[in-house]
Design a protein around this nucleic acid. Structure first.
Lengths: 341, 341
DNA sequence: CTGAAAGCGCTTACAG
DNA sequence: CTGAAAGCGCTTACAG
């Protein structure tokens, strides 16, 4: 039979309350007593039943997710995943709420973080935008003892506890690897469409992509990045204009959102004139574009994994546990038409 | 405040015991009483606290994993993942044990399943080998009321409750897609190395691979499959002999284990004579082969996901819950040198 | 600094 | 067919 607190208490000759104090590192136990209990714990091989502890505590953690009110499908699914977490938050003794902020807006984000601090939640997860005011807001949250996790896009150098997202530089390199190989011996130029160079994830993808392109596939020219602000209409317009103005575009890396516009522009072209395309995020648009050959590969980050990882890390931080890096690593998924879920 | 069994009892004017009987669909409740309780449950919006229920039940589920005592790294990591599940099985109120059987041996597998049946575990997961005796053993397990899940390799048409593994046909198609695209405009012949055509996962990969090859890349010839029984030495030998005997091999699909031998044979070749290679399962051998360019892409199934999914499904079956298909789908991961974990 | 007792939300014999 | 009481493994005031 697994040992319980009762066994520890009996073996150490103390009460349950004292065992609990030692177990939870609370003060008010004489050194000798503490040692006796610790001795019993390790000799019996006790491991705490977390579920029972939570039940007894009755404590519920309060977390907030600050998400950009972007209407692209990835952000929608991120919202949705947080929503699902909220709906199963009852039994998990967690109260989670969502705060919407305008996208690509450091001031608005910092403002939201500062306002949240007033409520003293146990933890906050947010999609970072770079900016001094955001760094300052994070520092303030940490001073207030609030756990902080960046989600999808990171804010390195800030006081945040953890980043729940993919290695975007590696994603860019992977895109270059695929695109370069798929293009085989052909010659021509590659175009890149991003959302905004203001968000770190897009910048890092571009860096990784450019690095591998110039190192492993120097034969292809890579055009300067076009920023479409994750807006399908703008993306369609920019791409259509480019494709109309020159005929040497054989590859396209769409590293942001707004793929609906890009697919639209591609569909207008003659099949044999279309570039090879690698895009990000598996959704309805990219799934059907993979199926009908308008897009050749899709890199994906699993929003559900990211949200669940962020919650696990926030809980751990509140309880003073370390992050298990291997468990929290978010993978870069590659989808071709044959391995779609 | 979330309603509890006490609230239901009070609101329905019955005792806790009666609430519990209704909640768990146990007999011995008058129809009118049951209706009153159900009314209270839905009007209060009650949802059961599973952790508390498990604590009170104190019941632990007993499961067995029947695994081939194969020494390839995938089977080792599968063992290892079950081992990890065992080590966290305390708090999860599950007792899991591993039963080893010789690989590729339907008789031995059936025997092990039959012997297990005598212990009456709550559920069994096993890596299927095809054979009449295995079908019969599964039927017997199900008759005894034991939950049964196939793992990694399926046994369709049998009485098993669920398959925890990837779509191997899709994996084969994905391999063909990658290999075909990577080879671009070149001409030549493709070789295929498998473990054994006796296990369904290998057969299905080959079918998917062949289908896409002949449909989308008819330019390449595909040689008859070589069976290396997941043995590195045998794989190295077969491949070396083939490569020595002909010079038109430009691609290789290694759909089983034993990649250590294959990488060894490849490393012997001049760099510019090496075929393009797609292999299965990310491990130390394939990871370093990806990094140094001996292998070009690796398809992977996550053994940890498969084991955890199998356990979730077994528990669900015991409790009479349906399988949530979307949650239990095991993905086919694609790794290139740039997106390795 | 330490302990006895009640309680978290559920389940389970047992009695009637 | 129904209920009172004890208990699962832990935590928390409260008293001393």
């Amino acid at each position: 039979m697994k040992p319980t607190v009762h066994d520890i208490a009996r073996s150490a000759g103390v009460s349950l309350a004292t065992v609990d104090r030692v177990l939870n590192g609370r003060p008010g136990v004489r050194h000798v007593t503490r040692e006796r209990v610790e001795q019993a714990i390790s000799s019996l091989g006790y491991v705490r039943d977390v579920a029972a502890a939570n039940l007894a505590k009755g404590r519920t953690y309060s977390f907030a997710f600050v998400l950009p009110s972007n209407d692209n499908s990835f952000m929608i699914s991120l919202h949705d995943e947080v929503g699902q977490a909220i709906s199963r938050s009852g039994p998990e003794r967690t109260r989670i709420r969502i705060v919407d902020v305008p996208p690509f807006d450091a001031r608005a984000l910092a403002l939201a973080l500062n306002q949240l601090a007033a409520d003293m939640p146990d933890g906050i997860a947010f999609v970072a935008v770079e900016g001094e005011e955001v760094h300052a807001a994070v520092a303030r949250l940490k001073e207030a003892g609030i756990a902080v996790v960046t989600l999808v896009s990171d804010l390195p150098g800030s006081a945040r506890d953890h980043f729940a997202g993919i290695d975007n530089n590696a994603a860019g390199r992977t895109a270059a690897n695929l695109l370069g190989r798929f293009l085989g011996g052909r010659d021509g130029t590659i175009a890149v469409v991003a959302g905004s160079m203001l968000v770190r994830d897009h910048r890092e993808r571009l860096e990784g992509f450019s690095a591998v392109m110039s190192k492993d596939f120097p034969r292809f020219g890579v055009l300067p990045v076009m920023e479409a602000r994750d807006d399908p209409a703008l993306a369609a317009e920019l791409l259509a204009a480019l494709l109309a103005s020159r005929s040497d575009i054989i590859g396209l890396y769409s590293l942001g959102a707004g793929n609906r516009g890009i697919v639209h522009a591609l569909a207008e072209m003659a099949a044999d004139a279309r570039p090879m395309v690698v895009a990000h995020e598996l959704n309805r648009t990219t799934t059907s574009a993979l199926a009908n050959g308008l897009i050749d590969a899709v890199l994906n980050q699993d929003a559900g994994h990211e949200v669940r990882s962020a919650i696990r890390v926030l809980k751990g931080k509140v309880e003073g546990l370390p992050v298990i890096a291997a468990q929290e690593r978010i993978r870069i998924d590659i989808f071709l038409k044959d391995n779609m879920p």
